[in-house]
Design a protein around this nucleic acid. Structure first.
Lengths: 245, 245
DNA sequence: TATTTTCATTTGTCTGACATTTAATGTTTG
DNA sequence: CAAACATTAAATGTCAGACAAATGAAAATA
């Protein structure tokens, strides 16, 4: 573990960086134990509280976990896809809402990325993923389903489609785009006719995926893209008319 | 600001969550000032250090910034694309290295996503972005360029391509895939013949983007995909042969 | 009025203490 | 001898109080 230059600014950040670097560089294996807080405070020549703040930062990024007790301490944590997912999704959602990304932009991004997955998904999808897609389609057809549940199911459907590509990197990057759009989708009121249309497009996609027909999946996705865009624009227009300001 | 349930576990995490929720929900505007640490410690009925740990977590996620002095305090921060980018890239890189994602998977994801961008980029690219692409191509042709610089330039080229889609959501999601692959790309030794081939493919892409020819851009990207994959597999094979372990 | 000084407020850091958790160690007991 | 129980040591978690440093605003002064 390296020492710290006697710089002025933000001690905890410097210490966190030093530790993070030594984790990233591979000096420390997964589940390796860091020196205790007291030891670290001696090494870096700062107080224990300062070290603790640094460790808290790393914990917030899921880089370490801490454990109490005799054999406890801070341990290097394997960054799991699950943790990274969760983080990625909240950040993406926040980014969209705080920067007021419009519906069109988010929609375009989402479907462009999904269409990138579709050919791979048509090639590799497991029966399991196909079954999930079918189940969600069935759920979407249920009468009396709330708009929110419909959106949830929509996300689940598309997630299964993306996971069908069997590429965790793709799934990870796409999760951000798909899930972050949900708040925007939730603004839409889906009429029965809207839902029928979406369900039929979903069915066409599932059929295409089932028969490994990449081009048909792409065509259906293209239609779904423009249809969703249309619905979104109507919803945004209605919203704008209601609250003119 | 809500109070905390008297649960046992991890006070700072609970407090951080409470504050984060009230930021995300939109109760607090950007640049709004949170109560001082002392006030928060009274509201939540914990010590100041506990509040500080919670605030540090939020700061690590770029949700707040702190300022010293009379009118200082913790302020809600607008999550900028730049901050989110940086975070996204380091997380993606870490995820790939810690979970030993193989070259093929990363490569497939990257180019699948890029091909999703290409049609949009062909439609919208600015002269500026095109100029960047040309400049990087020129740089890649320079004799005596190190492999690392060549990779850097490669990333810059593809970044310009992606940015050409003029969709910040796409740029954001793609940055993770493109940049995270760089460590893997850096393992490749590029011969002169390799570079010539790549430069010529880059030129074809730039030409297609310039003339708004989406299909030609896609074709060139497809070729680049398989060529990169080939190079990567050779490099991995060579590496495996060298260190059989 | 313009400049300087003072001051109150807030975060940053340090110190020391005690609480809590946990595994290892020691001790007792059947 | 072995199992159950008690003790202990080490580590993180939390608290309280102090002082340092920064910083803007108010007050004093030229």
């Amino acid at each position: 573990m390296k020492i710290d230059p006697k710089s002025k600014a933000d001690l905890p950040a410097q210490i966190a960086k030093a530790i993070r670097d030594s984790i990233i560089s591979g000096d420390m294996d997964v589940d390796a134990r860091l020196p205790s807080e007291t030891e670290l405070s001696e090494q870096f020549d700062v107080s224990r509280s300062t070290v603790r703040e640094a460790l808290k930062r790393l914990a917030a990024q899921n880089l370490i976990r801490t454990q109490r007790g005799a054999t406890g301490g801070a341990f290097v944590r394997r960054l799991s896809y699950q943790d990274a997912y969760a983080n990625h999704i909240t950040t993406s959602t926040l980014l969209l809402s705080m920067n007021a990304v419009d519906f069109e932009t988010a929609c375009e991004a989402r479907f462009a990325l999904e269409r990138a997955c579709a050919p791979l998904s048509a090639k590799r999808r497991t029966p399991d993923q196909l079954a999930t897609m079918r189940a969600e389609i069935h759920r979407q057809g249920q009468p009396g389903l709330s708009d929110e549940s419909f959106c949830d199911s929509d996300v689940a459907f598309h997630r299964a489609l993306v996971d069908g590509a069997e590429n965790p990197v793709l799934s990870y990057q796409l999760a951000g785009a798909v899930e972050a759009m949900q708040p925007l989708m939730n603004m839409i009121t889906f009429t029965q006719r809207n839902r029928d249309m979406i369900v039929s497009l979903h069915s066409r996609i599932a059929d295409a995926i089932e028969t490994h027909a990449a081009d048909q999946a792409d065509a259906a996705l293209a239609e779904l893209t423009s249809y969703t865009l249309e619905l979104g624009q109507q919803a945004m227009a209605a919203r704008a008319a209601k609250a003119p300001e």
